[in-house]
Design a protein around this nucleic acid. Structure first.
Lengths: 245, 245
DNA sequence: GCGACTTTGTGCGTGCCTTCACAAGCGACT
DNA sequence: AGTCGCTTGTGAAGGCACGCACAAAGTCGC
């Protein structure tokens, strides 16, 4: 239960497993900001500083970082370079993850051309579609192949992550092909819930749902605004600086 | 995110405000599935049925629906049409929400052309960019205007939701323009944390982070697999993804 | 009209995540 | 060398969400 305190330099897998899901998501955000800081020449950051820049609570940030070990210096902060290295190792970015993308529609095209992936250790290695007009063309130098080639191609090129940007009806079929190819992690942009074996991890990004959540908040704010007018309570605005006293 | 410690919790219209954030996200998913069911001619659904189709626990689904009122019939299920109506009202979809999009790059182009928005009550009403080569062209019949026109155009057309698909450096500036225009809800695809006044709601979609989370799971599964081989104990850890029939 | 069956709505225990608060540790300054 | 100020790391408490299990409530068959 209680971990041995101050275990410095080992790669205990138990440590990995114990990181809460919510923390992992934030670690990725910290990592990007740290990259920027490194480019600006920063040597160290304090938790308060990094927390403000990433919009989280400083204590939460420190706890998140404590999951991957003690890499801070009390009274000083965190050494940027060391923290970046450790985060990259923890997030599995120390070896590249080949990514395959299925569905070269509007969104798929954008994803295939998105520079944010390849530049960050996620080279898009294979593209697939069913449309004969698309199969055979190149996007960013990558050949679009037919969906039926998924199992073979993915296995050959060691694809570890699959992205599905097809229409909803096609998504489950594509997913099954990925699973067959041994892909264990899938990022799904199609508006359906994929059925997968236990050992496969699926994350879903649903743009329409995101908008609907915002629409809910629009409605809520509308009501709140009406209330405020009624009660005469105006709320002062916290400007772009955004740091609370 | 950063809220003043316990702002005045009035409970007047109360029902909307009391819906947990996590439930709102799922309500949107239920709504889409219900739309499909309605098209297939279904009159009623049971919670078990809808829960299986959307990948959630039936009890959780019933609790979610209970937040918006009792629209189920015991022994039968939920009347699809009535539930759709009520969900649309709760999510603020009974009046259209004009959406503005800034940043007509790869992703922006895809978003502008994405049919899933307009068809679901979110007409993309305005497009903006700074690139002179883009300003002036039409996408899907919508004119791309210069970013500096954001305040005026958004105010004129009653834009309630702004989407930011610009590079990171430009995002905060665009965000400020949205706020100036009175836009209170923002969907941010840029990899930065936006600083906004308290009354503005920001949701962030970060594709690179999504991939990094998956990369973490790839690494975790890798370790787990190696351990299994080593210890001979075949017990795969069940991750956090709880979707399983 | 009555009983059995089905399905909703929800009270409650459990576990995770967040947040506070503070001791421990480190560097700088005198 | 000692003290002071700053920052990390973490124990503990609170809150939120999830899921179980069951009572209430309705339908269907006879």
């Amino acid at each position: 239960m209680t971990k041995p305190p101050h275990a410095g330099s080992e790669e205990s897998p138990a440590r990995l497993r114990s990181i809460p899901e919510a923390s992992v998501a934030r670690l990725a955000v910290y990592l990007r900001k740290l990259g920027e800081l490194a480019e600006e020449g920063a040597d160290t950051v304090s938790s308060d500083e990094l927390a403000a820049a990433t919009g989280v609570n400083p204590a939460k940030l420190r706890k998140d970082l404590s999951y991957i070990g003690s890499y801070g210096i009390r009274g000083v902060g965190y050494e940027v370079a060391a923290l970046v290295r450790q985060l990259e190792r923890t997030l599995g970015l120390d070896h590249r993850q080949a990514v395959a993308l299925v569905g070269i529609g509007n969104l798929g095209h954008a994803l295939a051309g998105y520079g944010g992936f390849g530049g960050r250790g996620f080279p898009v290695t294979a593209l697939f579609d069913v449309d004969p007009d698309l199969v055979g063309i190149h996007i960013n130098g990558i050949l679009v192949e037919h969906v039926r080639a998924i199992p073979q191609v993915c296995a050959e090129r060691g694809v570890t992550i699959g992205m599905i940007a097809t229409p909803g009806q096609a998504a489950q079929g594509v997913c099954d092909l990925f699973v067959e190819a041994g892909v264990r992690c899938i990022l799904n942009f199609a508006p359906v819930v994929l059925q997968v074996p236990d050992e496969v991890e699926v994350r879903k990004v649903d743009l329409a749902v995101e908008l609907q959540i915002l629409a809910f908040h629009v409605a809520r704010k509308h009501v709140a605004a009406a209330e405020q007018v009624a009660s005469g309570n105006g709320h002062p605005v916290n400007g772009a600086g955004g740091l609370l006293p």
